[in-house]
Design a protein around this nucleic acid. Sequence first.
RNA 1: GCCCAGGUAGUGUAGUGGCCCAUCAUGUUUGCCUGUCACGCAAACGACUCGGAUUCGAAUUCCGACCUGGGCGCCA
Length: 430
Amino acid sequence: MRIPIQSVTPESGHAEVCGWVHEVRDLGGLAFFLIRDRTGIIQVTLPKKRTSEAVLTAAKQVSRESVVRVAGMVKAIDKAPGGRELVPDVFEIISMADSPLPLDVVEKVPADLDTRLDARFLDARRPRVAAVFQIRSAAMHVINQYLHHEGFINITTPKIVAAATEGGTDLFPIAYFNKEAFLNQSPQLYKQMMMAAGFEKVYEIGPIFRAEEHNTTKHLNEATSIDIEVSYADHHEVMRILEELIVKTYEYVNTTCSDQLSSLEISDFVVPKPPFPRLPYCEAIEIAKKRIEDPIEYGDDISPAAERALGSEMGGHYFIVNWPSEIRPYYAMPYENDPSICKAFDLMHPRMELSSGAQRVHQHDLLVQQIRKKGLNPESFEFYLRPFRFGMPPHAGWGLGADRLVMTMVGLANVREAVLFPRDMHRLVP
RNA sequence: GCCCAGGUAGUGUAGUGGCCCAUCAUGUUUGCCUGUCACGCAAACGACUCGGAUUCGAAUUCCGACCUGGGCGCCA
């Protein structure tokens, strides 16, 4: 019976493992094979004089990264990695790997990201790459667990939609029988409909699609968004949920992924401390004005240079709050005492924006007014506006970029490294 | 979409007009080697993105195409 490599100890006696041939060191009368599975690496040692002909033939024939089944006695040896080695009486080639390999799994020679993504299945065999996705999995697990625990209902909303009701970003048109259709840019409107449906707290973790032709290390055309919406909550309440979720995610990764963090050579993993500073937009602009050369004025978006300047000033996660209504979407709730600013916020990591959200406008007539103010036609928003006419509770929510969360958490240079099969302007395969 | 930088063995690189039938590492193959752990040693194999131009001569200069990386714009 095959057992995980990590569980092989000197006490195992006779053990059978399956995995990839990681490295071969043939010293002549003695040969070492490193066999790797997802749990670790074990040294298989062949003293040639005392090894069967069948084992020697297979060992001679096998190529790097072939899948093999090896069984034999486990011996305690200080000189071997992990303090044990396996002396095989069985060495079976299950699946021979072609040569040459598209990239070097052992990492003696680096590979460009492009090369790595072209051969992602091989790239992901590298422990440090696998570690990123194990951490991502842990993060998604604890986020689901936290939201479930907080009473959120997990929903799934359509990714094929009829029209671009939100404006702003470009959508991908798709062929949908004989109708016009698009890939959805966000579950925003559907989350809000579920507030009208009385679900009170909903969340969705799913793909979002943006057809922007950007070419940066932090944008993708297909991303994973963690979205929540909460009835009877204001922006303060959902910011609190967001910061608690971020902290819990870091804590969980910190306590359950120590092997993965050390694979990534992260020795200074810092769990952020709540509460995160709430920086009013107007103060953010003042800081940016002092710190960057490019002109920036109240009413402008926060440019990447301004983001970086603020990031180094703030030093950790922080919120930008009280945005001018003018530069936020129509569904962001304006302050009653000063409608020029609204109850919208962004959650920032020092490197980039992670999340944005707001208390939403829940009053039908105010929403129509806001849509008009943005120069949009309320008539084309009928499917969105309808729920607001039949009893819509006040509500607030946010969307958090899962890929950026992972990227910033483990310090990846490029968001593509946090995604198994990233989709950008140039990459559609694999 | 705009701007900048690139494209050389399977992989990662050196090479700015002749010194290049192209450097180094890794890999692969063969030989030697009984404690390696990036094993070592020896030998061999393997590449200038494509098309056009300039030149006695182009990996190197110019033009075009394609591809890649990055920045900006855009990103409710």
